[in-house]
């Protein structure tokens, strides 16, 4: 011991850059989540379609999306696709899409579970009083499903937030990326990565406890109602 003297001042000195990186991390995770919600809703809807082909296709896509590591998706989209088909995504776009595919595959399952959890009697009753399919989905099923879906959705966002730390491998200048290049300049990797780790733990824990609160709140309401 004693070979390495810690210098936490380095964090203070580079705080503005690190915070700029953190904002990019938040941005890319939110963009990824937006894609995930779109993909998820789309594929969940397909799974409830009357056409078997669509069910099978959406099921396979969801399976594949859940099986691929985010790391592979990032490289596949950013280096693979761009070189092969000359689709040039920026690093940020590629990262958001990769996050969106991973998250979307999980969101599809969440949506499906939420919609399935609504008692069939609810839609039957809605049809009986003369609502059409669209109205039944919009007014009866979805409002109830959201209550079930919301906590899990926040959990998936936590996952994406943690996943967003690896987008620096394709060059997105997020907080990890900043930590990396500052540590190359200053030879202080330990302090910088530790700081990044602590920030992430604080961030994910606060979002996760929000999900927990939400779950308690919503389940309490549904029990009373």
């Amino acid at each position: 011991m004693g070979k390495y003297d810690f210098s936490w001042r380095i964090i203070e000195e580079h705080l503005p850059e690190l915070m700029k990186g953190l904002i990019i991390t938040l941005q890319i995770s939110v963009a990824g989540m937006a894609f995930a919600l779109l993909f998820g809703l789309f594929f969940a809807t397909l799974r409830f379609s009357q056409y078997r082909v669509l069910n099978v296709i959406s099921n396979s896509i969801v399976q594949v999306g859940r099986s691929l590591p985010l790391f592979v998706l990032l490289f596949w989209i950013y280096y693979g696709l761009s070189l092969k088909f000359k689709i040039n995504f920026s690093d940020f776009q590629a990262g958001a899409i990769a996050l969106g595919i991973t998250g979307g595959a999980y969101m599809a399952e969440v949506f499906r579970g939420g919609i399935k959890a609504i008692d069939q009697g609810q839609s039957d009753a809605a049809f009986a009083i003369g609502l059409n399919r669209m109205q039944t989905s919009r007014l009866i099923v979805l409002p109830q499903a959201i209550r079930i879906i919301l906590p899990q959705t926040v959990n998936i966002y936590v996952g994406l937030l943690k996943g967003a730390t690896i987008v620096s491998v394709i060059g997105v200048s997020d907080m990890i990326y900043v930590a990396q290049y500052v540590s190359l300049e200053t030879f202080r990797p330990f302090e910088l990565y530790s700081f990044a780790g602590v920030v992430f733990i604080a961030l994910t824990l606060s979002v996760a406890s929000f999900a927990w609160l939400l779950e308690r709140q919503l389940s309490g309401k549904s029990r009373r109602g």
């Binding site: 011991m1 070979k3 390495y4 943690k162 996943g163 730390t165 690896i166 620096s168 990890i176 990797p189 330990f190 990565y193 530790s194 990044a196 780790g197 992430f200 733990i201 604080a202 994910t204 824990l205 996760a208």
Partner: peptide, 25 residues
């Protein structure tokens, strides 16, 4: 539990591989 569920893998792997070497040799 909270610590290891909250920390991103990217940070943890760097911490275990490089961090332990720096701090604890």
């Amino acid at each position: 539990t909270q610590l290891f569920r909250g920390v991103p893998l990217y940070v943890l792997v760097i911490w275990v591989y490089f961090g332990l070497a720096i701090v604890a040799d």
